[in-house]
Design a protein around this nucleic acid. Structure first.
Length: 422
RNA sequence: GUGGGUGUAGCUCAGUUGGUUAGAGUGCCGGGUUGUGGCCCCGGAGGCCGAGGGUUCAAAUCCCUUCACUCACCCCA
């Protein structure tokens, strides 16, 4: 009987050792930059009560309607694996009264998100986001600050050829006027739209704007534009955001057709795309959500934030060719006596923070040298019976090929001194 | 949920009109005089040819079914 091989779940990937150093580097870059802008890390759970996402993301969105991993706990409570981070961060913000200790709260978090979509390039069922949220400031400067930080981070992470698009989605005063104007317009041209768009008129009319079917785009070109329907407050806010971005020398384009898939966005919305990605070319996206905190039962506090797709970001980075790990010293011991000494030495060096390595199999010097090379070892320490008799060991610099003798009875000190000098 | 593409060694892929024991490159292990890595040379291990069924004297190759992966739609990070 052959055992069936158990594989990972569809759309859920392992991050292998050769890739984890890139993830660390990106996360470290994010951490440094965000902290520099005054953001603090928060860690929120990957599961929440289902109602949290239903209320925040919106009952009729695709995410809530058909993409969430929802299940009943043993006590029958409905739980969901988070499809995004904003809802959890807001929940925690409200639950712990973070607004009480500081009127402006700046938070970031990292972690896996879950959406049950059909996987493709740049889209997975478990994917990772870097998420940033700023609460308590409704000024356009905070919009610009957050966007500036996002772009600064992406370029620092090593990305180029990015395009930044911004738009304003209006607020609860002006967006409904725009929505009904769009619906009226679309009703007249209903028959000429693609089937998907005809469906969207009923479900989520604003989504017609990013339909890729050519016949639809030409029809939509003549549709009402949100920017013409903004109320005075939204209008002022949007132009102030643009002027701040100009002051910061950020290049962006205004895309009046950009709508976002989560219901909670208001006013400023933005998205960063990369040409290096394929169909799923959106690297990061976010926007303002001024009514959301109070809608979820918290104080009436404005908010703005964004999410960055880690897998997509890393896909844009140049691939790592060789072993990203390094070793300070490989110890090639020949024979049982030498190996016994080498074992203790290896552990002691590691104890002092030196990355030392050795093999416990009794291998030839040649094969041990090969392994030292493969481990990217800076030095190799070589000794066998002959050296033990003479109370010495050979230290080889792997790049210069220089070798020097060290006293065997003071190996730890001698090796440590040389390695620390580097 | 709907389409298209692809499944052969750890990885990247050849495999002719069906025809001996299924190959290459790379990686791994060993060797190239006795104890020195990268380059080069030689050798070795490693495959139920995704799975199941059918046609045939004969199937990696043809047919059917199924599964997996992948790209795209949809949607989004």
């Amino acid at each position: 009987m052959t055992m069936e091989k158990i594989t990972a779940i569809k759309g859920i990937k392992d991050i292998l050792p050769q890739d984890t150093p890139i993830w660390h580097r990106v996360e470290l870059t994010a951490r440094k930059i965000f902290e520099c802008f005054g953001f603090c890390e928060i860690r929120v759970p990957i599961m929440e009560k289902t109602a949290l996402f239903q209320r925040s993301i919106g009952e009729t969105t695709d995410i809530v309607e058909k993409e969430m991993y929802t299940f009943r706990d043993r006590d029958d409570e409905l739980l969901t694996l988070r499809p995004e981070a904003t809802a959890s961060v807001i929940r925690a913000y409200i639950e712990h009264n973070l607004s009480a200790s500081d009127p402006v709260t700046k938070l970031f978090t990292f972690g896996p998100m879950f959406r049950r979509e059909r996987p493709q390039k740049g889209r997975f069922r478990q994917f990772h986001q870097i998420d940033v949220e700023l609460f308590g400031d409704d000024k356009p400067q905070s919009d610009a600050e957050v966007i500036f930080m996002l772009m600064h981070f992406l370029t620092s992470a090593g990305l180029n050829e990015l395009s930044l698009e911004i738009n304003s989605l209006g607020c609860k005063a002006c967006r409904p006027l725009f929505s009904s104007a769009v619906v009226d317009y679309l009703k007249d041209v209903d028959q000429s739209l693609c089937p998907d768009c005809q469906r969207r008129i009923k479900t989520n009319p604003l989504r017609v704007f990013d339909c890729k079917v050519e016949s639809c785009s030409s029809i939509i070109a003549g549709a009402p534009q949100i920017l013409n329907y903004l109320c005075a407050e939204c209008e002022d806010h949007f132009s102030a955001v643009k002027s701040c971005l100009d002051d910061l020398n950020l290049t962006y384009s205004v895309n009046p057709k950009m709508v976002r898939g989560l219901d909670y966005y208001t006013k400023t919305a933005f998205e960063v795309k990369s040409g290096a990605l394929g169909a799923q070319n959106s690297l990061a996206g976010g926007g303002r959500y001024d009514g959301l905190v109070s809608f979820l039962g918290g104080p009436d506090v404005p908010g703005i934030g964004f999410g960055i797709g880690m897998e997509r970001l890393i896909a844009c980075l140049p691939p790592t060719d060789k072993n990203p790990y390094r070793t300070d010293l490989y110890i090639a011991a020949l024979g049982l006596r030498a190996q016994k000494i080498a074992f203790g030495l290896t552990q002691k060096l590691r104890h002092t923070g030196i990355c030392a390595a050795m093999d416990y199999a009794d291998k030839s010097l040649k094969s041990q040298m090969k392994r030292a090379d493969r481990l990217n070892s800076a030095y190799t320490l070589i000794f066998g019976d002959k050296e033990i008799e003479e109370n010495r060991a050979e230290l080889r610099n792997m790049s210069t090929k220089n070798q020097q003798s060290l006293p065997l009875d003071h190996l730890l000190e001698a090796v440590t001194n040389i390695l620390k000098e580097r």
